[in-house]
Simulated scan of single mutants.
Amino acid sequence: MGHNTIEVQPLTSCIGAEIAGVDLSKTLSDEQFQDVHDALVDNHVVFFRNQEITPEGQLEFARRFGTPEVHPIVEGSNAHPELIEVLKPAGEGASFGTGWHTDNTFFEKPTIITMLYGIDIPPVGGDTLWASMEAAYDALSDGMKELLDGLVAVHSASVAFDPRHTRDKYEGKHSLKYKYSEAVEVEVEHPLIRTHEISGRKSIFVNPMFTLRIKGMTDAESAPLLKYLYEFSTKPEFFCRFRWQEKSVAMWDNRCTQHYAMNDYVQYRRFMRRVTIGGDTRPV
């Protein structure tokens, strides 16, 4: 798709693009915002370099896409509950988003877009990977597509946010703080194959962090099929890798991606600011 007001440089043949010619500290014109929006839908994840963004500015830009969410478990900043300050002190291992996942699929109406702003970035390490679930779906055999069509997956935060394994965060002893709510235990159902409401393209909509099982099957019966989909959909052919710099922004479409935060910079401090944007409808 052509863009009149921005420069879009794809990173791979199926996912990821860097956008130039945009100053996110200023209010974008309707035309430029539409170009950014279209580039995001086309490329699944987009990146901006050298952006000066205040917390208020980040929220203002996010609101152009939808409603910023207040996470039911992870505590936001005091001034702006919608913004999560993702701090990893030097000497502490990364522990947020460090496995393949799609943000907040345990919501009844899952997050559609995430915006992450890099403020304090280590000199090396801490890259993030994104995988295209659309490219993965397209690469499935016709027989597998037929098998998956109509299946429903059950999602929950009960494993990822299990208080038994993340007690230090619930007790306020970690740089990232959790608060327990009923959202931890709730189970929700989403189609295993999702159709993007804007592009109309299909993608695989399960992830190992929040998907428990396939509806109508036991955990044991679901496990082999889900394991295959997790491994298949995150093959290198389907992903891009982003090296963070200070003042970089990443925005990604959770309707058609998974992502993975590298935990390879224990000796360094990193500080990011995240906002997620809520969906208006349940996936179909």
Score class of each variant (00 low, 15 high):
residue 282 R to S: 14
residue 87 L to S: 10
residue 221 E to P: 00
residue 180 Y to P: 14
residue 121 I to H: 04
residue 151 L to V: 00
residue 167 R to P: 12
residue 73 I to S: 02
residue 224 P to W: 10
residue 8 V to P: 07
residue 245 Q to S: 14
residue 84 I to N: 01
residue 252 W to D: 02
residue 239 F to D: 00
residue 144 M to V: 12
residue 17 A to Y: 01
residue 158 S to A: 12
residue 233 S to K: 03
residue 71 H to M: 10
residue 142 D to R: 02
residue 104 N to Y: 10
residue 122 P to N: 08
residue 123 P to A: 11
residue 232 F to R: 02
residue 214 I to L: 08
residue 277 I to F: 05
residue 111 T to I: 07
residue 247 K to E: 14
residue 249 V to S: 04
residue 7 E to D: 13
residue 158 S to T: 12
residue 273 R to Y: 12
residue 235 K to A: 13
residue 224 P to R: 02
residue 63 R to K: 14
residue 257 T to M: 05
residue 278 G to S: 10
residue 277 I to K: 08
residue 3 H to I: 06
residue 269 R to F: 03
residue 8 V to W: 01
residue 96 F to K: 07
residue 153 A to K: 00
residue 72 P to V: 06
residue 231 E to T: 10
residue 154 V to R: 04
residue 153 A to P: 00
residue 168 D to V: 12
residue 260 Y to N: 04
residue 54 T to E: 09
residue 238 F to V: 02
residue 271 F to Q: 09
residue 94 A to W: 07
residue 112 I to W: 06
residue 266 V to G: 08
residue 184 V to G: 00
residue 123 P to S: 11
residue 206 V to M: 06
residue 134 E to Q: 15
residue 19 I to M: 04
residue 262 M to V: 10
residue 24 L to F: 04
residue 20 A to R: 13
residue 30 D to T: 11
residue 186 V to Y: 14
residue 59 L to H: 09
residue 212 L to M: 14
residue 205 F to T: 02
residue 209 M to L: 11
residue 106 F to Y: 15
residue 115 M to Y: 07
residue 250 A to T: 04
residue 241 R to Y: 06
residue 58 Q to P: 06
residue 120 D to G: 05
residue 115 M to Q: 13
residue 111 T to D: 03
residue 256 C to E: 01
residue 232 F to Q: 01
residue 145 K to A: 06
residue 281 T to I: 14
residue 236 P to E: 06
residue 43 N to L: 09
residue 189 E to H: 09
residue 250 A to Q: 03
residue 117 Y to F: 13
residue 65 F to R: 02
residue 58 Q to W: 02
residue 200 G to Q: 08
residue 250 A to K: 04
residue 148 L to M: 05
residue 71 H to C: 11
residue 15 I to V: 13
residue 134 E to G: 06
residue 170 Y to R: 15
residue 29 S to K: 11
residue 222 S to G: 05
residue 52 E to T: 12
residue 220 A to G: 01
residue 49 R to K: 15
residue 200 G to I: 14
residue 184 V to I: 15
residue 282 R to W: 11
residue 196 H to E: 10
residue 238 F to D: 00
residue 178 Y to S: 15
residue 93 G to T: 11
residue 169 K to N: 12
residue 39 A to L: 10
residue 254 N to V: 03
residue 9 Q to H: 13
residue 235 K to M: 07
residue 5 T to L: 09
residue 259 H to K: 03
residue 195 T to N: 06
residue 236 P to N: 13
residue 236 P to K: 10
residue 261 A to N: 00
residue 206 V to Y: 08
residue 234 T to N: 03
residue 5 T to Y: 06
residue 40 L to Q: 09
residue 1 M to W: 12
residue 273 R to F: 05
residue 51 Q to A: 10
residue 141 S to P: 02
residue 179 K to F: 07
residue 98 T to R: 08
residue 225 L to G: 05
residue 170 Y to E: 15
residue 268 Y to D: 05
residue 204 I to V: 10
residue 182 E to P: 01
residue 198 I to P: 01
residue 249 V to A: 04
residue 94 A to I: 08
residue 228 Y to H: 05
residue 266 V to I: 14
residue 12 T to D: 07
residue 40 L to H: 05
residue 90 A to N: 04
residue 188 V to M: 05
residue 80 H to R: 07
residue 214 I to R: 02
residue 189 E to W: 04
residue 30 D to S: 15
residue 52 E to W: 09
residue 45 V to H: 07
residue 223 A to Q: 15
residue 31 E to G: 07
residue 230 Y to Q: 01
residue 154 V to H: 03
residue 149 D to R: 00
residue 39 A to M: 10
residue 253 D to G: 08
residue 178 Y to E: 15
residue 171 E to D: 14
residue 204 I to N: 00
